[in-house]
């Protein structure tokens, strides 16, 4: 019954030898948690899943009204609602992942202090829940495109790449906030603030082409600029151009955020149960 392969050694500061294998073993938990959050989210609501559609639609309407009708910003020949909605999709995925992954460890504190499992499961499942919302909202985009008779170009096949990039950005930032939030609840206050700001400083209600050329690179320090531009490039097609230096900078930042996010999370993970 005792086999030597399954010796588990617990020691101070010892990195888990089989961390990634463990994470794989707990993949079912990952999906159960995501499934739980999706099931629970719209319990006792009247219109249920429709909320996933309503929020981006309403934001799109307001932005179109303000930026196109009132501020008279250029759309580059694309119906303004589509211009806005294409950007809203990744932004909403990113921002809601940031807030829910950030809060995820604290809202599952009971589990963390009573059961062992790789803690990464929790923020990752929070991001997955928002990914499902993202996919649902994607259906609305298709509807909008049909409504306006707008046909995408072949570039649309690059879209999975940009979706993946959004996912990485959301996860990287989410992991940072989640781990920091355990010790410093200040982030519970900071995050909604950042999310609110981000909605206006990211190129959502407008095209990033209206940013003066000499500021474009600095503007791309916001990784969501690259992500949103990528979405527009792939979906809107036509004469939409990618600003490559900025886009590469965004990709680089997104990757740095993910790698450091995982490293920081794993470093602090072991103290979660003591601190939370």
């Amino acid at each position: 019954m005792i086999n030597n392969q399954s010796v588990l050694v617990i020691e101070a500061g010892r990195a888990e030898r089989h961390y990634w294998r463990d994470l794989w073993r707990y993949r079912e938990l990952l999906f159960f948690l995501a499934w739980r959050d999706i099931l629970v989210r719209y319990k006792q609501t009247v219109i249920g899943m429709a909320w996933s559609l309503g929020r981006p639609l309403l934001t799109m309407l307001v932005f179109t009204l303000v930026f196109s009708k009132l501020a008279q910003l250029p759309s580059g020949g694309v119906p303004y609602p589509i211009l806005v909605f294409v950007a809203l999709l990744p932004w909403q995925f990113f921002s809601s992942s940031l807030s829910s992954a950030g809060d995820s460890l604290i809202s599952n504190a009971g589990m963390i202090s009573k059961v062992y499992f790789p803690r990464l499961v929790i923020p990752v499942s929070a991001v997955i829940v928002n990914f499902v919302d993202f996919l649902i909202a994607g259906v609305v985009l298709i509807g909008l495109m049909v409504w306006y008779g707008f046909a995408p170009s072949l570039r649309i096949f690059a879209i999975p790449l940009f979706i993946f990039m959004t996912f990485i950005a959301a996860l990287g930032a989410g992991l940072w906030i989640a781990a920091l939030n355990v010790k410093y609840r200040d982030f519970r206050i900071i995050v909604p603030f950042v999310v609110q700001f981000g909605l206006y400083i990211s190129p959502i209600g407008f095209s990033s082409t209206i940013v003066p050329e000499q500021w474009r690179l600095i503007y791309s320090l916001n990784p969501m600029v690259g992500v949103i531009d990528g979405f527009r490039w792939a979906i809107l097609g036509g004469d939409t151009q990618l600003y490559w230096p900025g886009f590469l900078l965004s990709i680089f930042l997104v990757l740095v955020m993910l790698v450091t996010g995982i490293a920081h999370f794993r470093k602090t993970e072991k103290t979660f149960a003591d601190v939370i």
Partner: peptide, 27 residues
């Protein structure tokens, strides 16, 4: 022992699959 928190020093060696029940109905 159930790997929820880390020791400050010392070592534990465990042979076999551990399940811990520190609370009923966690989660």
């Amino acid at each position: 022992l159930s790997r929820i928190t880390e020791p400050s020093s010392g070592q534990i060696r465990i042979h076999g699959r551990v399940s811990s029940l520190l609370e009923v109905g966690t989660g």
